[in-house]
Amino acid sequence: MPLVMTMDVRNVNIAVVDLDHSTTSNRIISHIEASEYLSLVGTTEQYIVAMDALENGTVDIIVQIPNNFERDMIVSTPEKINITANAVNATKGSLGSQYLVQTIARALQELKNEKSPTQLSELVTVQNRFNPTLNYRHYMIPALMIILFILICGFLPALSIVGEKESGTIEQINVTPVSRMTFILSKLIPYWLIGLFVLTIAMIVARVVYGLYPVGSIGLIYFGAACFILTISGFSLTIANFSETMQQTMFVMFFFVMIFMLMSGLLTPIDSMPNWAQKFTGILPPRYFVEILRSVYLKGSTFMDLWHNYLALGIFATIFNILAALTYKKQA
């Protein structure tokens, strides 16, 4: 999954319209060829040809190097290099052009350094903390773990209880002296165990396959997971209590799960949401677990840094489970 769910842009197809035919333009082209993210489709002298290819979709970005670029660069300010990007896929368009700009800048810098090797210093340095290579997978893996939790501990217990309602077996159980609490717990405990087991497997896979291991304490992760499991299973139980059929449960769960997935910062950062939406995420339990998991995994945060998230999950777990107990009618 993390291999597929990635925002890293690769294989950006580039066409170069080289009107200059100089050492500089050749250097730029060879840099593009060498780049791991960009792939050179071809060079041409006619912009219109490249534009056709862009429209056909065989090319994502066109680079036009103006005539006499090299000469003008030495004597005065040259005409600017023109980059045309297909932005139907906005991510690919914007990230691709950024990669391209960096590649061209590096090529020009290299040429400059060759001519006057004294100026070696770079002006800007960027240091990415906690995820130094900006690997999108490291951002996604904790999110995928949470999605698994939502599915296993959110959907399945609700479906299994409503399934008994549908088949009528719940009636037969209800006339036995088995208490409701025992019945509910017997429905939940297997999924709690499965949830923690899946978390363990997911952490092992993340370590072995993707080389990602938590910087912080594993205990904190399990503690957060336990709080989250209680929350989400209490939530699903409440929904199961209100529904008569599997279909009802599915539709209601889907409604909430969609909101959870899209608004809890699983896929897109909460900070980039509009202000009202950021406030709204406060009532979404997964939001807190997302923060816990990412901080512990990538930053190595401690309990003192995250205690308010645990508190929030604890409050949600209490509310939902009390609600579930109240709505669970002992007798219809």
Binding site: S167, G168, T169, E171, Q172, V175
Partner: peptide, 8 residues
Amino acid sequence: YMPGRFSL
């Protein structure tokens, strides 16, 4: 109790 519907 044996409900009308088969519920085992």
